[in-house]
Design a protein around this nucleic acid. Sequence first.
RNA 1: GGGCGGUUAGCUCAGCUGGUCAGAGCGCCUCGUUUACACCGAGGAUGUCGGGGGUUCGAAUCCCUCACCGCCCACCA
Length: 907
Amino acid sequence: MALAKPQTTDMAPAYQPGDVEPAIYQRWLDADVFRPEGAGSQADWSKPPFVITQPPPNITGSLHTGHALTTTVEDLMIRRARMQGFPTLWVPGVDHASISAQVVLDKIIAKDGETRNSLGRERYLERMWLFINETREQIGNQHRRLGASVDWHRLRFTMDEGSARAVRVAFKRLYDEGLAYRGEQLINWCPRDLTSVSDLEVIATPAKGTLWSVRYHLVDANGQPLPDETITVATTRPETILGDTAVAVHPGDARYAGLVGRMVWVPFVDRIVPIIADEVVRQDFGTGAVKITPAHDQDDFETGKRHSLPLIDVMTDDGHINEHGAAFAGLALDAARTRILDELRERGDLVGEQPHDMILGRCERSGDVIEPRLKVQWFVRTKPMAAKAMAAVNEGRTTFVQAHHRKVFFDWMENIHDWNVSRQLWWGHRIPAWYCPEGHITVSDSLEGPGACDVCAKPRAELRQEEDIFDTWFSSGLWPWSTLGWPDSTPDMEKYYPTTVMETGYDILFFWVARMMMLGETLTGREPFKYVYLHGIVRDPQGQKMSKSKGNVLDPLGVINELGADALRFALLHGPEPSQDQKMSRPRLEDARNFANKIWNAARFVLSVRPAEIPSDFRLGLVDTDQLGPADHWMLERCAATLGAVESAYANFEFGEVARLLYDAIWNDFCDWYVELAKIGLSDASASAPRKRAIWSTLTWVLDRYLRLLHPLMPMLTEEIWGKFPHRASDPELLMVAPWPLASDTAVAADARLAEGATAVIELISGIRAARAQSGIEPGDILPAQVWLAHGPPSDAYGRMTDAFGRLARVQPALVDERAALADGLAVVTATGQARLTRSEADLQRERARLAKEFGNLQTQYDATHARLNDANFRSRAPEAVVEQANNRLVELGVQMDALKSRLKGS
RNA sequence: GGGCGGUUAGCUCAGCUGGUCAGAGCGCCUCGUUUACACCGAGGAUGUCGGGGGUUCGAAUCCCUCACCGCCCACCA
């Protein structure tokens, strides 16, 4: 019963992703199938467009696993939607990343001995463009390697004029509506990067500090400090004494009740400031009295406002004491602190110091301590915008796929502070505000700027543009609509806005997602996207976050080169849900590669067994359907069940489940069972040609369905294989735009009765295999076996699967009608059937010998353990746990030996 | 100080609205030259489902509580 000689195929014996993937991507580009209006698009414009909002990667970055995951998930969603016929749009882009780009460029120019300041703003920006133009292609090319089906025609760089105009118009609109304002506020200053940063970029870091107690002297009527009348305050930042404008106590604090209203002398700066009473002071902390430095502390700033205290900034931009610092001017902050402490100590006014655990704000980027400083900057009034964004969620216009993020989102939105959008950097969108000599502000959205001052009509020549640029997230926050032509009402805006799914990592929920929602609602009056899907973090095998400094990064391009992009994509999906954090490891990647190879070979097999009379330009379909047997119906039924399960997983955004379902269906159902069953049918000399055609058409039909279902996950592999298979007349050239399988799209509905029968047969085969292996029966031996199957469908199917049954279970089966008719023998029992195997005398001998040998091994161990336990030395000197372990082992061995004995007898 | 996620076989993870839910893959062990695939096939062993309470006829699955791991938010000198 040899298999018919396989036909040759042009498929390599092992899948070579390196040969396939780039070529396939090029085919897609050539066919123009990425853009919805493309020549190869099969979009059904009667359907609503499906649009992805993605985070544009930084211009300076190279592909990391986070990009790989985000791209994989987005590509998965959009490919499925595309196959479903929706017009699909995925706009790719690059973010100018102002601060990161500057850090990178600063390093580069440092090699030429230049600095930002030595070049000056204009030359620095020229240099930046040079750099950007060299690198902007890189990240895009890397996304191509991943197979991202983005619309390259709409590629957007956030420094393009399209974005620039959107930024200007957005800002002017906010300004006109009172949602953007210029004001003097306490901002977060990074003395290293020399710019303010938003609250989100300040990382609360635990630190070991010191709490010092400092004596302040009250003054007499003439303003002279009194040597003996003092009030002691507690501070962790003595250097800010130079900016003190009050001392505060709690209004209810009896200790200080008499002092409120008196004046104290601030050392070093010779300033007389009041003792005030304020509720914020905690009586039980420190001394119950606190110095107030409104220009350098958020609490103090608020207190200062309540009491109309002066604000005195004592710092320079680069972290030194400024001219307000009297004798300390010019000193670095820490040096100033040391000297101030020394001098206080000398005067006897440093009366206490104790270690103090505190939280320090550090710059996300430079790690330097963030200094709260008073600055005039531009702010976005977020409260009213946040209300709109929350309304979108409450009204169900925007849905968080993972509901728990919703709570986090609301918590942040409800407690939101105004957004400082000014950055004292050069690379980015310059704030389009102009100031006239009178101090009037003119905000303009035109490329040329304003013609004159809005207020006093001073000519343009006298206006001065704001030096600051916008926080990068201000332009990224306009992404979904600014990429579609906003503020114009373009056809793209009409068609593709609001977008469908916003997909990104949960780590930028506040930075980006929340801001898009606020800005989108405010500027476009619509929710920018219907769904928010947030993915987790890809970690190293130990669960550590990957980082270049730790050296534990997984280079996606390396993986792609070695194992293929499809393998990388599948590995990222085949594990925990992408919404969870996941650990990526070599075995997971290899497993995905193996899966790719498995499909490749299954396809190779199917192609190689095409019956000669089926023409190579065969149109896909189930032929000779009356010839379909139980196994074929079983396969069709399994395939339909998988489709149903995949659909419901997609409906719940459970992409990990999709991967699992397809992996199991293809590997187990299709390869392990159906292909094996089909081999037998195809090689059966007595089977008719129509029967063989029916089997082969089922193989191709099912494989076609699985390739379609798998395409969003492993696009290049599936495209390549699909191209080698028969298609339907109605199918396009490319799988990428071929129709998504429908439950109703079955040439013949699977016969549930026959499928059920086949299941019973398959289960019995498994049972027999297990029994054989356990009983040590030679794999090559074909044993006589009696078979009984429960009445009804199972036995019905069996009749048509006898041959397969015999070959796969390696038995010579004989069906009996009654269970009672089963003779003695090695019994196999399943839910729907039974079998009795007659072992040859040789088998019985072999098994006895094997059992005896095993018994001998156990006996040896038993004796050794027994002897050890009888050794008084061992019992008295070994740790209790070890003795107990030995005891347990002895019992366990005894039980195993008993079991063997009874089997020796029984066999 | 709040909040979120996690804790299931050695490892990575499934187990949705309580009753074939104790599973898969890897690893491990046994066997296999049945020509799609050794990046393979057949079979096997391993878990008191983090601890403790509770609800229930019945709980990895619901409630309470504790512990540990990770993360987010937070203006207390």
